[in-house]
Computed example of a mutant assay.
Amino acid sequence: MGTVKMLAAVAAAATILGGGVTLAQAADTVLRAADTHPNGYPTVEAMKYMGEVLKEKTGGRIEVQVFDSHQLGEEKETIEQTKFGVIDLDRVSFAPMNNIVPETSVVCLPYVFSSVESFRKVMDGPVGEEVLKAFEPKGYIGLAVYDSGARSFYNSKRPIKTLEDMKGLKIRVQQSDLFLDMVKALGANPTPMAYGEVYSGLQTGLIDGAENNWPSYESSHHYEVAKYFSLDQHAQCPEVLMMSKISYDKLPAEDQQAVRDAAKESVKKMRELWDAQEEKSRKIVEESGVQINDVDKAPFQEAMAPIYDKYASTPELKALLQKIRDAQK
């Protein structure tokens, strides 16, 4: 985003929000939170739950106001606004943070986690804390890691069963170099696009497909215009709940800790809702007549060798990758 456009977005958000952390009389603090997902989505409900916990922990002194359904912009815009303190709390995918916080790229590497259980074990431990701490030098406070399920490809043209089936497909990707390179390595044509534009892109043929998890595929209604869902499960790139460092630094130490504790408590709630939503979403998709197929993952995994070389290239990132692997043993 250019400087002029970015400042305009910040100004627009400030008009909606009244500007960042609000300290009203009697130290009453309202934290504004952004999420692109619709009301009822697990991450949205988890942030609401965090707000309830935080309000209780602070005796009502701090509240969280959640703006869902990309009311405050798509993820790229909210990330920038959060850095400037216009938005206080932001739920975004790790993917658009890859170019900002390199450690997030390692977590998003294709096939780096063997299962959902392994992912949760790793991200709940020292590795997860290390990655969250890496946000702070960039102007954000990493508070919690939310699930995002296993991402798979879906499209309007054909089932994807082999690498050959990927060739020529125009696949929407998040605004992340890692995802761009991953799709290129698989032989398809990556097209960066905001999440909110994917349905119309599929409908008009601007793109042939995209990649995401069951709840996103279903709740966005992409299954209506992309009837082939191929279970390659290439990534479990998670979500992050982060806070503007500007907003965080305005709070006293006691309240900072309360924010961190409430965010951590919201993870359990998010996962409960996520597991239920995955099951519900898959059932809706299956009943709609979508063609679902398994994929032989081995050739896909082999094609990822250059991606690992590029995104775990420094000694620090290689060490982080090894920690992820060791934690799954």
Rank of each mutant, 00 (worst) to 15 (best):
residue 1 M to G: 06
residue 3 T to F: 14
residue 4 V to R: 00
residue 6 M to E: 14
residue 6 M to H: 04
residue 7 L to N: 06
residue 8 A to K: 15
residue 9 A to S: 12
residue 14 A to K: 03
residue 15 T to S: 03
residue 17 L to F: 00
residue 20 G to N: 10
residue 23 L to R: 14
residue 25 Q to P: 10
residue 27 A to I: 01
residue 33 A to C: 02
residue 34 A to D: 05
residue 37 H to V: 00
residue 40 G to W: 15
residue 43 T to I: 10
residue 53 V to K: 07
residue 58 T to H: 01
residue 59 G to A: 04
residue 61 R to D: 04
residue 62 I to K: 00
residue 62 I to R: 00
residue 63 E to W: 03
residue 70 H to C: 04
residue 71 Q to M: 09
residue 72 L to A: 00
residue 74 E to K: 02
residue 75 E to V: 04
residue 81 Q to V: 00
residue 83 K to M: 03
residue 85 G to C: 08
residue 87 I to V: 10
residue 89 L to W: 13
residue 94 F to P: 09
residue 97 M to F: 12
residue 98 N to I: 11
residue 99 N to L: 08
residue 101 V to Q: 00
residue 106 V to F: 11
residue 108 C to R: 01
residue 109 L to Y: 13
residue 109 L to P: 12
residue 112 V to W: 08
residue 113 F to K: 01
residue 115 S to T: 12
residue 119 F to T: 13
residue 119 F to M: 11
residue 120 R to I: 12
residue 123 M to G: 08
residue 128 G to W: 13
residue 128 G to Q: 12
residue 130 E to N: 08
residue 132 L to I: 05
residue 133 K to C: 01
residue 141 I to W: 03
residue 142 G to K: 06
residue 144 A to L: 09
residue 146 Y to I: 00
residue 151 R to C: 04
residue 157 K to R: 10
residue 158 R to W: 02
residue 158 R to F: 01
residue 163 L to I: 10
residue 165 D to G: 04
residue 165 D to V: 04
residue 165 D to N: 04
residue 165 D to F: 03
residue 166 M to V: 13
residue 167 K to R: 13
residue 172 R to V: 15
residue 176 S to Y: 12
residue 177 D to W: 10
residue 177 D to E: 14
residue 180 L to Y: 09
residue 186 L to K: 01
residue 186 L to D: 07
residue 189 N to L: 15
residue 190 P to D: 01
residue 193 M to Q: 11
residue 193 M to E: 09
residue 196 G to E: 14
residue 196 G to K: 11
residue 197 E to H: 03
residue 198 V to I: 10
residue 199 Y to S: 00
residue 199 Y to K: 09
residue 204 T to N: 09
residue 205 G to E: 15
residue 205 G to M: 11
residue 207 I to H: 03
residue 212 N to M: 14
residue 215 P to G: 08
residue 216 S to L: 13
residue 218 E to N: 13
residue 221 H to M: 05
residue 222 H to C: 09
residue 224 E to Q: 06
residue 225 V to D: 03
residue 227 K to E: 07
residue 227 K to R: 08
residue 228 Y to C: 05
residue 230 S to T: 14
residue 230 S to D: 14
residue 233 Q to W: 11
residue 235 A to P: 06
residue 240 V to E: 03
residue 245 K to P: 06
residue 246 I to W: 11
residue 255 D to E: 15
residue 260 R to W: 05
residue 261 D to K: 02
residue 265 E to L: 13
residue 274 W to T: 06
residue 277 Q to H: 08
residue 281 S to L: 06
residue 282 R to Y: 06
residue 283 K to C: 02
residue 284 I to V: 15
residue 288 S to Y: 15
residue 293 N to R: 09
residue 294 D to F: 02
residue 294 D to C: 00
residue 296 D to K: 14
residue 301 Q to G: 07
residue 306 P to D: 05
residue 306 P to W: 10
residue 310 K to T: 06
residue 311 Y to V: 02
residue 311 Y to W: 06
residue 313 S to H: 14
residue 317 L to T: 00
residue 323 K to C: 02
residue 323 K to E: 06
